[in-house]
């Protein structure tokens, strides 16, 4: 029974990583940049949802879309102001700018909402219960965990369909293959990149809300470590690949939970990153990444 409950915890943690990693991977695949501010967009989303629920008494069904809208706008604004002027710049310059944006968001949050932790309310309850008891109450599955896993699967399938079948999605794939050629085919590259940021940021908001309702704890620095771990998850699964991000995120969550349960609570991060290093050494492009041979 404990084993099953560890699996459920791992799956729900992994699904959160997967949702964040999907945002990372989309942005990386198209803009070819490591958006280190992604983790802080998660934090903003969580704060927006927190204030909507606690200060304005909005129901969760309204608060979550509100957080998504705010984050989408934030994502587009960040992209316009900070990243767009650097389209031709060396990638390290873009990386440093992303780090600057990340510091900016964290410190603005600290000034606006104070550095003291907020206790996030549980959004997903059915009839006042936080979790569903199975096998006569031996196995407790929280509704948040169910919602997280469900949301993750829906998002993954939705994104796969979106990139495969819609005009915008096809434009995104074209941009990630070859920007110049896409432009020659009449694709508005700048708009496509902005849309990618918008989608990534909306996903970040969802991840933020789910994460904070699972761990009921919110700080201005809440997003940074999950952000880094989700980035690792994206690399783990093969960066740029949507199923890869999903697989990487879920595996990372499971590994972390099982390490905490059976090896050591303190060493869980070390084990997660060690597994990542080993995987990259065996499969340098990640689990589902495509190995592109170099043309000379």
């Amino acid at each position: 029974m404990t084993f099953l409950s560890h699996i459920i915890t791992g799956l729900s943690l992994g699904s959160i990583y997967a949702i964040i990693a999907l945002g990372y991977t989309m942005v990386y695949g198209i803009a070819k940049m490591l958006n280190f501010a992604h983790g802080d967009v998660i934090m903003v989303g969580a704060y927006v949802c927190f204030f909507a629920v606690t200060s304005y008494q909005l129901p969760a069904i309204l608060a979550v879309p509100l957080a998504m809208v705010v984050c989408t706008i934030l994502g587009i604004v960040i992209e316009r102001l900070a990243y767009k002027p650097l389209r031709q710049a060396p990638s390290l310059a873009v990386l440093i700018t992303a780090i600057g944006v990340s510091y900016f968001l964290q410190n603005s949050a600290q000034i606006l909402w104070s550095a003291s932790p907020k206790s996030f309310p549980s959004l997903f309850t059915v009839g006042g219960n936080k979790s569903l008891g199975l096998f006569g109450g031996q196995l407790q599955i929280s509704y948040t965990a169910m919602a997280t896993v469900l949301a993750c699967i829906v998002i993954m399938l939705g994104l796969t369909w979106f990139t495969g079948n819609t005009k915008m999605g096809k434009a995104m794939r074209a941009c990630s293959e070859d920007k110049a050629a896409a432009q020659l085919m009449g694709i508005n590259v700048n708009f496509t990149i902005s849309m990618t940021f918008a989608i990534g940021s909306a996903l970040a908001a969802v991840a933020g809300v789910l994460m904070c309702s699972a761990y009921s704890y919110l700080l201005p620095t809440t997003g940074s470590l999950p952000g880094i771990k989700a980035f690792t998850a994206a690399v783990f699964g093969g960066i740029g690949s949507i199923p890869g991000a999903f697989l990487g995120g879920v595996l990372l969550g499971l590994i972390e939970t099982f390490t905490k349960a059976y090896i050591s609570t303190d060493l869980s991060d070390a084990v997660v990153f060690a597994v990542l290093i080993v995987v990259l050494l065996v499969k340098p492009a990640g689990l589902l990444g495509r190995y592109v041979p170099e043309k000379v």
Partner: peptide
């Protein structure tokens, strides 16, 4: 915050 803004602006 100022540090972050300086970083972005310099870049």
């Amino acid at each position: 915050l100022i540090y972050a803004v300086i970083l972005i602006v310099v870049m």
